[in-house]
Design a protein around this nucleic acid. Structure first.
Lengths: 185, 185
DNA sequence: GTCTATAAGACGATAGAC
DNA sequence: GTCTATCGTCTTATAGAC
């Protein structure tokens, strides 16, 4: 792996775990076993430029993954259940935070720049779009699909936050107990 | 207002807006128009002790507020709708973040201490408990009330995160469109 | 109880050698 | 493309005067 990709990969993990402000450049550099010179060669604008690259990488990784799951299932209900199960399993194995939550970054948004906010909203919207299309495919009218897909995005994001706080997978797995009341079979 | 209370009040606002790591002591001190000496007199263990006091204050404020709303309505459905409406309105008026979200702090939890995590989980659990009791009162069986109350907590927290990211109140107000499908009238 | 002054270190960022 | 060395600023925290 080249240095730039390695840098994005390690920074991504650390930002997701500790938030943007919670991670120093030195920590990232140490993880990559490189020094400041290399970082500023690849990201002349420094830490924030690195963060935006991380958010873009996350967007690609997450949407690709969700997309694959949703293509493998006929209904939104079973696809979402599979997704939630996967997230639960990831959260369970290793105490590492699964790669899907970036609320750690979003929550600092008011002290960050406009490009960062844009990258975050883009991420949520791409996820929601996958749900939305699948719901249309299920036969839901457009307005209802919009509402449901937003609600799904909201619930899963909130569940991951609570899993993090409680150090438990219950908030996430509990979603699967509720979902059948919202989505048709 | 005495100095200690003022300190908690101002720090609470700043932590909610920018997260724990995002706020420096100097910023808090400037807002209160006091200096380091006063802060370390009231909080000998420094910033983290102040944070825990803030979380406790938030818990009291939030649960009291929710409790009051829930006492004024006969069903969980109408009470929750009123709560969500209030949160939406607060988020709308002024660009300040409403006082209910502390995901900005939770998300940094992995780089914070155990007492902080405990204060955060306590907060979520107190909120959930209010929903839980109201659901029992509505006639739901215990197991279902537990599941629904957790889901409500998750959804509202997630909605506030997305409102923050998108700079829109839609994620929150959308909850009220979905709720009637989950809770009986 | 609050102030000033200061310490010791981490922060992000830059310059220049190789 | 990566290194070392350094800069200025900001950070939390402490000591001691009042």
């Amino acid at each position: 792996m080249d240095t730039k990709a390695l840098l994005i990969e390690e920074a991504k993990n650390l930002f997701q775990q500790k938030g943007y402000k919670g991670v120093g450049l030195n920590e990232i550099l140490k993880e990559c076993e490189i020094t400041k010179g290399a970082l500023y060669h690849h990201f002349p604008n420094g830490k924030e430029e690195l963060l935006i690259s991380c958010l873009q990488s996350m967007q690609e990784e997450i949407t690709t993954d969700i997309d694959m799951i949703f293509q493998q299932h006929s209904s939104t209900l079973t696809a979402t259940k599979t997704l939630v199960d996967k997230l639960t399993a990831e959260l369970d194995s290793g105490n590492k935070i699964a790669g899907y939550t970036f609320s750690s970054i979003v929550s600092e948004i008011s002290s960050l720049s406009e490009p960062v906010r844009n990258a975050c909203t883009a991420l949520y919207e791409e996820i929601q779009k996958i749900y939305f299309k699948k719901l249309l495919n299920d036969g839901y009218p457009e307005e209802e699909a919009a509402s449901l897909s937003l609600f799904m995005t909201v619930s899963i994001e909130g569940a991951m936050t609570l899993c993090l706080a409680k150090d438990s997978t219950l908030p996430l797995s509990n979603i699967n107990a509720i979902l059948p009341r919202l989505l048709k079979d």
